[in-house]
Design a protein around this nucleic acid. Sequence first.
RNA 1: GGUCCCGUAGUUCAAUGGAUAGAAUAGAAGUUUCCUAAACUUUAGAUACAAGUUCGAUUCUUGUCGGGACUACCA
Length: 598
Amino acid sequence: MLRIMSVVAQIKASAVKAIASLYNVELQEKDILVNATKPEFKGDYTIVLFAFVKQLKKSPDALGNELGNKLISENSELFSSFNIIKGFLNLSITDSYWNHFLQLQYHNEHFGIQPSNGKKVMVEYSSPNTNKPLHLGHLRNNFLGWSIAEILKASGYEIVKTCIVNDRGIHICKSMIAWQLFANDATPESTGIKGDHFVGDYYVKFNDEYKKQVEALKATGVSQDEAEREAPIMKAAQQMLVDWEAGNAEVIELWKIMNGWVYNGFNTTYQRIGSNFDKTYYESNTYLLGKDLVESGLQKGVFFQQEDGSVWIDLTADGLDQKIVRRKDGTSVYITQDIGLAEQKQKEFGCDQSIYVVGDEQNYHFKVLKLICQKLELPSADQIYHLSYGMVELPTGKMKSREGTVVDADDLVDEMVNIAQQKTIELGKVKDFTEEELQQLYDTIGLGALKFFLLRVDPKKKMIFNPEESIDFHGFTGPFIQYTYARIKSILRKSGTDAVSAIDGYSSSLLPLEKELVILLETFPSIIEEAATEHDPSKVSIYVFNLAKTFNSFYAEHSIANAETESKKTLRLQIARFTAQVIKTGMSLLGIHVPERM
RNA sequence: GGUCCCGUAGUUCAAUGGAUAGAAUAGAAGUUUCCUAAACUUUAGAUACAAGUUCGAUUCUUGUCGGGACUACCA
């Protein structure tokens, strides 16, 4: 595939060359700051001169003039003119360059997609517990994981998507106990309740009953602590965990049945939101991993043993605390499992990087995990990358299941799809669609709105979701971009896309909005690159929105089908087709579909 | 107590140390004989506070005030 250097890269390269020949000074391309020129000034791209004024011992104006003249004389096919304002060298790119670029790329369906670079990256995301259904936080996690995987794929990496299911532990036993006590053999089938919700309901029932028992005990005069320890239902759950670990057949059987219900529910949700994994790990299989590493760590002197037999690592020299890695009863803890799992993944897939999409509440955990792996000199150590994302919060603060303020994933998806349906019917533009096509359209729009809402924000930052106000379908939203796409496709259908052909000579001049669009389109590959290196899908979201917005202005200002001349019509059709292509690719990097009509 | 993160229009979000801090939404005023008005155009509105570094600070440093996370022999 033909790879063209981006305009910005060309500007940097030619500036380095010009400065070398003018002043005999060797600069690096990264030393040269090139920005898009602000709209109030003439030009397309701007070189900021201050950075090397001192080094070259020139006044900004003199430097700008000499550099500007040199650039134009050496690169006449690229630069048409320049001006200098207060230390900023504004460069205009020739229309013929933009035309040439457009002719080369407008029909390229893989524009922005890099060929394989031979490297493999693992992305772990979702990581649900099997005692309750998925919620809004899981959605952000899933969409981020999916999008990062797509963005890295587009950057040339091979991707392995994994999920670790937390399917064992006291919380699962709580649901199981409550089911035994209160269900009277009810099942998701008998009640018609989705499996994960069904099991989640018993988890809630457990907590209700537990609370009652604690209160009852306290009424008899025991302390809060003791009541919490002695509540019969809690003791039953703890006993069940012991039985599970001992392999008690009856308990294991029930555990399998209830987890099966939950997996059915999860699968429905994953399918609905378009998420999947290449490999799913289950903690019931991995929780014993890492034990042997504790032994070797002890021998290497990385870990130390306390008198009670528990094993620790001292990270105080690294500014962290002491951390336990094996309990006194010999069982391993969460972090030990994670060390073992990291090694397991490494052996199984041999990836160059392993990305964990996990909330920022676990920043400390991953810092410790990486550090321990490094101290143990494990091959997996340097591949660990924690893609830490902020929590989704309500205006009132954190979502709390105990207070019933959790926004359920299935409910939210349903709500979004319903709104999409309602608005589509109101507008009445697709009355000829079949029922199946309509359902698909509602899903596309509803999920598009939801995914875009969660992916338009910098992943590192926490974000606020207000359940009182539904997610918007206007403005900086998924449906806005989908609508722009559908509009373009409509134009192309009416004109016949095959009619688009090369225009004569690359000489036709571009109107401001035409040029703005071509310039934006040209930056798409570098946006993907930036999103990949920063692990930040919001870069793509913002870009695609700006592209759609610019196209809509263009569309309102200039007619495509009834353009002034035939060559203008061809040019605009090419721009429109190219824009649609980039919107489609960009949205696919976010896991969002675009409709042909809406 | 310790470690870390965050304070930008009424609200939700942008801004690799660069020009007059961008958008969206809510507000005000407009646009439909013509390619989809889920659109377009115009308008008003913000860097918590105080010092410092710099030609230049939302961005870097320090302090103050406010908010949050983590600091489990839970996962």
